[in-house]
């Protein structure tokens, strides 16, 4: 009897261009960021309807966009904030700018992503580019946010189903998990900001309904109900969002998956420098695991979130310095209009 060996199994792993690794990471981050921004706009609209007077201001705060926003606008009205975050091309944190950046990264990756991935991104980003003021009226915004969210999820699904599982997909997943980890802390911060100052106290009807809305916006409401039943203490909800090992958008889930990706780089692709970054991520996991949500809230939830966001940026920076080190001269061929995020590839949130 002869034993046949699959020739594919004996091939050494192919090298990945550094630029592809960078673009894959940022493509994932931008797509996740768009989805989360749509979730945040949607939930803010819900908050405002349920009486959070300064709800729109909160989005500006969690994105640290105060300077940019108030340079152009006197007041954070619904129309202005929505326009600022959906169709304003001057704002690098708007959905239209993020979609443009995602598209440019995907264009760079076209040689290695599936045709289906590109086609869907192409149609989606063209749709976003063509949005006009009439498409973002308050009466339309919830529907629009759903549509954007669905397009991002379609992207995620097509990627899961078609992206070849080589190094590029690992870097793509790194981007996704860093962004999800970052975004869950921002989503929690929305509640922190809208809560202050509030006449309605903790556990009041408004408070509870806002926490429920937050869970819903993270697609975690029913899972939470199933696991936690009637417990609607803020600390339990924060604990769920930060520490549930089963919730796909929780901080701990994404730190764990990020860790897996970095391990995969080291183990399957012999990228040994990944060890240093693994240690960093392990530290973050330890900090998160060694305290309860109540303790985190007691010490300052907002401060924790801020710290985590800073640490995740450091992880991202170190990944970049390790796998796509820059030479002094790197700014090539930026689009001449300059209104979109400079360099497209490496825009960070703050």
């Amino acid at each position: 009897m002869t034993i046949t060996v699959d020739p594919i199994a004996t091939l050494p792993p192919q090298p990945l261009l550094s630029r592809y690794a960078e673009c894959a990471t940022w493509l994932a981050r931008y797509m996740e960021r768009i989805e989360n921004l749509a979730r945040i706009i949607d939930i803010t609209e819900t908050f405002v309807r349920s009486g959070a007077a300064d709800g729109w201001q909160a989005i500006i705060q969690i994105n640290a966009d105060e300077d940019r926003f108030f340079k152009a606008h006197a007041k954070a009205t619904a129309e202005r904030v929505i326009a600022f975050y959906v169709i304003d091309r001057e704002n690098p944190t708007s959905i239209v700018s993020l979609a443009h950046a995602a598209r440019e990264n995907a264009r760079s990756l076209r040689p290695i992503i599936s045709v289906e991935m590109w086609a869907q991104l192409n149609v989606f980003t063209n749709f976003i580019r063509d949005l006009r003021a009439a498409d973002i009226r308050p009466s339309e915004i919830s529907t629009l946010c759903s549509r954007i969210k669905e397009a991002c999820q379609t992207h995620t699904g097509i990627t899961e189903g078609t992206l070849y599982r080589d190094q590029a997909s690992v870097f793509y997943n790194i981007g996704r998990h860093i962004e999800r980890a970052d975004q869950i802390t921002r989503l929690i911060d929305i509640k922190y900001h809208t809560l202050l100052p509030s006449d309605a106290g903790v556990g009041s009807e408004v408070d509870i309904s806002q926490w429920s809305a937050l869970l819903r916006s993270a697609a975690g409401y029913h899972a939470y109900r199933r696991v936690m039943a009637g417990d609607i203490r803020p600390s339990s909800i924060v604990g769920f969002l930060l520490q549930s090992a089963a919730f796909p958008r929780s901080l701990t889930t994404n730190l764990r998956l990020l860790h897996n990706c970095l391990t995969q780089l080291r183990r399957d692709y012999r990228l040994l420098p990944s060890s240093r970054i693994l240690e960093r991520v392990e530290h973050l996991c330890a900090v998160l695991e060694n305290q309860t949500a109540s303790q985190i809230i007691l010490r300052g939830l907002h401060e924790f979130n801020d710290w985590m966001q800073y640490e995740l940026q450091s992880v991202q920076r170190e990944i970049g310095e390790t796998f796509w080190p820059k030479e002094p001269l790197t700014s090539l061929f930026a689009p001449s209009d300059g209104t979109f995020p400079e360099g497209g590839m490496t825009q960070s949130q703050t």
Binding site: P15, L16, L17, Y20, P111, L271, T330
Partner: peptide
Amino acid sequence: VPLVEGRDLVTENDRVYMRTTGGLR
């Protein structure tokens, strides 16, 4: 084959390499 841009390639000792996540190839 990889689609490279000029910035993905370097020369050393009159040989051409591409920058990859695992170093020069």
